[in-house]
Write a protein that binds this DNA or RNA. Structure first.
Lengths: 204, 204, 204, 204
DNA sequence: CATGAATGAGTATTCATTCAT
DNA sequence: AATGAATGAATACTCATTCAT
């Protein structure tokens, strides 16, 4: 019984270090230019071990993408606790951006977009499980605010896209074209401004 | 004299056919997976001729990108002629989307984003001469509307980004992840909704 | 005592299942393309156990080849009991072909031939213990027929090769180049014809 | 016009050296263990040039096989000029063996047999265009001898196989299992013996 | 000026064998 | 004695770019 446990521990540790190495490599070089040998080297395993864990480069990439979804989402409790719609929306925007910029998701998005011509499923999958899922989270978040009468009743599916679009435009979009993009110093002002436009129409 | 003229014409005709071939190839396959040999074949020239005209794949790509900017922009006259801010904004949004989807710019954007890790200049250049330029156009457009008192005086640099973000979110962003993305049937409603949110804050 | 016996039985049973799995794999895929991991999987043992029993792929292959010799040979009694040389030779030819096609020897022969460049000993061994041995059997068989005055006295070492060659030419040789080779419908006629040519010279 | 001619000459010379190198490599190592990089090295070209000439390893192999057929066959004139059936058959057997052993066909046959499990078409093709073709040549040869009344009228399709089988048995068959197989010193006696058995039945 | 054959560097994947438990 | 995870060496094929004519 110690044997199995030992093996599992070792195996999981290797798997983890592979995923870390692969995440870094894919973020740095995109899918096509990432090299399996380099990932193996970074993870300190042989290429054969790499292939034992992940049957192909595509499979490894998918795992990385999938892992990047995990733990993402706006904590819905924030909507319940915020004192005002403005506060709630500011929190949501900041959470979103922190996740986007903190977990290398920007770079992964670029990698996914790169492969979209060649392997459309990857892009569609990402859209569904990543992008759309986050929008749904935001919709639920807004629904709470409506329920608390902090926002007017309205089509939150549409307004969530508007709010998301306004926030992305100044941060995520430029980051797609510039890997060295840094958060602008007036980040808070931009967010506040977007919140105000949103509230001008949907505020209670 | 006549000889030179002949040569120039031949050369320009080759250059043109190369650019057409390259544009198609880059749109179809992205930068990395586009093959110089295939571009030469499509353009009916030798690879050596290709390299006589464009020193490298990157240079050829940049030329394609640059050409894609030309003829792009919202006709500013529309702002002057529109009867209402609503009409003007609706026209602007539609013009933007028609250009984006009609000239293969979506596919080129994906290609640019793909190469951003490897060749950051291309991305920055695109951002500056493509994305930002179009935003500036929109700012000028909004300024006209302010001047005509169809919009409140306000920071049009900020509001242009908000309007652009709301429009892109539902159309351009999904297209980045799905090369087969088609305009949704409720396109007009989405645009109208964005316009209304915009006017809720900035309308005169 | 009981423990040892148990262990031996288990070990022998594993060895047997390994050999069965290996035989099938080598026949299907030849030596080079047979995979040790697949043999282990089929035999339901670990690769390490496989290597405990057979030190290397070559050794395992040799064991398979060796086992394929066992039980092969023309029952010499047939020569004593046959009423005529014709009958005896027909029986010999049929026995030979039944063994060749019935025990997967054709496929193993292909496998041996494949490895002859890389591992010449395997080929030589097969030649000596397989091919030549069967010729010797046939020589002894013919000698009996000579002794019974059903054949003229003659150099049976030479004539055995001639008879074997005539039989192989139409059956074994094509099977070497075609793994799906099926016995032709006129098999009996071909054998009879070979027997007659043989008897034209060596018949009593 | 000199340009095209020059290029063709260079190209053909490269192609020739590739085929020589490939022939040697395939003969030495069989198909699977032959390495494209090694062939390129031997031929003093880059691997890319190799692939310009031959699209894949399989294609290269097929070309080698095909080339090995060319120039093979018994000169039919020998049948017309020989004074006796014995002389004609002896010539035929010797021609056959000289070609078989002189042009590396033995080694190529081993290579073909090796790939038969994995790629059955290669084996079938070889059987049809190599083995069967040579048998047909022999049939035509025998038919001439029948016409000249040096052989009895008979089924030459069947007898050709018998003669071929007797000759192969002592020379080609052992060579399949032993790459270092050398012609035995009593080669002439073996051939003579086969001829005599043949003539015992089919001689005029 | 145009050609296209040649280059060489770069990469995903497989498999016999070993070794810590 | 048995396991199965880990190894590392080996290999076909592609593509941007150059150069002799």
């Amino acid at each position: 019984m110690g044997l199995e446990g030992y093996r599992r521990r070792v195996s999981e540790s290797k798997r983890k270090s592979i995923m870390e190495a692969a995440g870094a490599e894919f973020q740095d070089n995109g899918f096509t230019h990432a090299a399996m040998a380099e990932i193996a080297r970074k993870a300190d395993v042989s290429t054969a071990t790499l292939y034992k864990h992940f049957g192909s480069k595509e499979e490894l990439f998918s795992s990385i993408i999938e892992a990047s979804y995990a733990g993402i989402g706006i904590p819905q409790s924030a909507a319940a606790e915020a004192k005002s719609a403005k506060e709630a929306l500011t929190i949501a925007a900041n959470d979103y951006l922190n996740q986007q910029f903190g977990s290398g998701i920007n770079a992964l998005m670029r990698a996914v977009i790169s492969e979209t011509s060649g392997v459309p499923e990857v892009g569609k999958d990402f859209l569904k499980r990543g992008v759309h899922q986050r929008t749904k989270d935001l919709v639920a978040y807004l629904d709470q605010l409506v329920e608390r009468n902090l926002l007017k009743p309205h089509d939150t599916k549409a307004s969530a896209l508007q709010f998301g679009g306004m926030v992305k435009e100044s941060f995520v979009w430029p980051a797609m074209f510039d890997p060295n993009f840094k958060m602008p110093s007036n980040k808070d002002a931009i967010i506040e401004n977007a919140v105000e436009t949103f509230l001008a129409r949907y505020g209670a």
